[in-house]
């Protein structure tokens, strides 16, 4: 009972708004990317003057597009999985499977996020920048961490929800 409430509360008050916000920023990055390339092509074709560094800006924007949308995909269950076996499972056994798989997912995402944090330190310490415009690399490495943390939160709520169903009478 308590666990069910906890997971619903987490989802409603913390996770859903964060996922929505992250996804919105990611979508804006995607739209910005589209306009950047269109303007670059236009300037190059009409004025023979491409935008210097458009290439690397797209690369950085891709980091926003991907890592700010990953968690929302987990929340809305659009990440791809194969349900050929689990479709036959019902009730508590199914909940148990969901509990285990979410736990495994959380494990790898904690490691991935931790690795991301270490990498922020590394790219800062080594002063890595982009080639043409010398834009620092590390803020975009932080985006990986933010996306990872939110993904972990979604998984944690999934775990609590599955656990509450496993323990249900």
């Amino acid at each position: 009972m308590f666990l069910g409430k906890l997971s619903r509360g987490m989802e409603r008050w913390i996770i859903r708004p964060l996922c929505l916000g992250f996804s919105t920023v990611g979508a804006l990055a995607l739209i910005g990317m589209m306009f950047l390339v269109v303007i670059d092509v236009f300037l190059r074709f009409v004025f023979n003057r491409p935008i210097l560094g458009s290439y690397e800006i797209v690369e950085y924007l891709m980091v926003l597009v991907v890592f700010l949308s990953l968690a929302n995909g987990q929340l809305s269950k659009t990440h791809v999985s194969v349900e050929v076996v689990t479709q036959y499972l019902r009730g508590r056994i199914r909940a148990f499977f969901e509990f285990i798989t979410a736990l495994i997912s959380l494990g790898i995402f904690i490691l991935l996020t931790w690795g991301g944090i270490l990498q922020v330190g590394h790219v800062r310490a080594t002063h890595q920048v982009s080639q043409a415009l010398a834009i620092p690399h590390w803020p975009f490495q932080i985006i990986v961490v933010l996306g990872g943390v939110l993904f972990c939160l979604v998984l944690a709520a999934d775990i609590v929800a599955a656990l509450s169903r496993v323990l249900e009478k």
Binding site: P50, L52, G53, Y55, E56, Q131
Partner: peptide, 19 residues
């Protein structure tokens, strides 16, 4: 594909592109 060539090309009025 590097600082030197990019800056040189900019200086002489060309357009460096990273492809």
């Amino acid at each position: 594909g590097g600082y030197g060539m990019t800056e040189f090309l900019k200086l002489v009025g060309g357009s460096p592109m990273n492809i």
